[in-house]
């Protein structure tokens, strides 16, 4: 517990960690990112590169700061040390240019608007030149992309949890962002819905070519969906391991029965177990 009450001097001392990340084709890159909040070292010396068009998962125990790292990428928090950039821009600027789509665990739809108006809600604020009809058309198009084309006029309370989350994904995609940042988007859903949502997300990813960063605590989900998995350790939050998932796309749920999948699950589980051990630096 004591270790978490660190100062910036301590972060600097840890900067000797060798950088192994390639920055050539990176759409998102974090360089030497540390974050101190209320005198607690939350994230320490994160180096991360997300290649354009890839699907990257961040996995780690509760409290490792994986959601916080996502917030840094979204520009909702500023790093104490180091920098984050999206296509060379600071995240706040990238967000203003509609390059970032956000999806959280809760869909947070507006209960007074129907599905299609919810899907175009953020777009209507980001681009005030669009007419009501244009917004509707864009919302409808996005609902169709997430498989809710015939639910456009339903109110949020008429939709299931999974459907609400689909609308939330449509709302993010309506901005036509380069990057989709997702913070445990299926965390509140039951196992079966979760599987089919994951499959849909893969489908959307392949059709749109978006770059996706997914925060999850599900090992299966991380391996099933992503091309790269980064494991975060706790106290302080840092990247302890990175794993490339070299399974071919398109992937479906039958993948989970293959020996290579099972081998990766075991490998990732071992990495996660080790990441639970607190440590000052790797």
């Amino acid at each position: 517990m004591r270790q978490s009450a660190m100062r910036i001097d301590t972060i600097r001392a840890a900067e000797t960690r060798p950088t192994t990340v390639r920055h050539d084709d990176a759409l998102i890159s974090a360089k030497g990112v540390s974050l101190v909040l209320s005198r607690q070292l939350i994230l320490q010396n994160i180096d991360l590169s997300v290649p354009k068009g890839s699907f990257v998962s961040l996995i780690g125990p509760s409290g490792c700061g994986k959601s916080t790292l996502l917030k840094l990428m979204a520009g909702l928090l500023q790093p104490t040390e180091g920098s984050v950039s999206i296509a060379g821009l600071p995240p706040v600027e990238a967000a203003r240019k509609r390059m970032i789509g956000l999806v959280f665990q809760e869909a947070n739809l507006l209960p007074w608007k129907n599905a299609v108006d919810n899907a175009s809600m953020l777009l209507s604020i980001a681009d005030r030149s669009l007419s009501r009809a244009e917004l509707r058309a864009r919302g409808q198009e996005m609902l169709e992309l997430v498989g809710l084309g015939d639910s456009a006029h339903k109110q949020p309370h008429e939709l299931s949890g999974g459907m609400r989350q689909r609308v939330a994904i449509a709302r993010a995609l309506a901005l036509d962002p380069a990057v989709l940042l997702m913070d445990e988007p299926f965390g509140a859903l039951d196992a079966i819905t979760r599987d089919s949502m994951g499959q849909s997300l893969l489908d959307i990813w392949q059709r749109t070519g978006k770059t996706i960063v997914l925060v999850t605590h599900s090992i299966d989900e991380a391996i099933h969906l992503s091309r790269h998995v980064h494991v975060l350790g706790i106290k302080p939050g840092r990247i302890t391991e990175s794993l490339d998932i070299d399974l071919p796309y398109p992937r479906d749920l039958s993948l989970t029965e293959e020996p290579e999948f099972v081998r990766l699950v075991v490998q990732l589980r071992t990495m996660l177990r080790e990441s639970h051990q607190p440590g000052a630096s790797s």
Binding site: L76, R98, N108
Partner: peptide, 8 residues
């Protein structure tokens, strides 16, 4: 956060 991210 969503609203802030699009500069509301």
């Amino acid at each position: 956060s969503l609203m802030n991210s699009v500069g509301a």
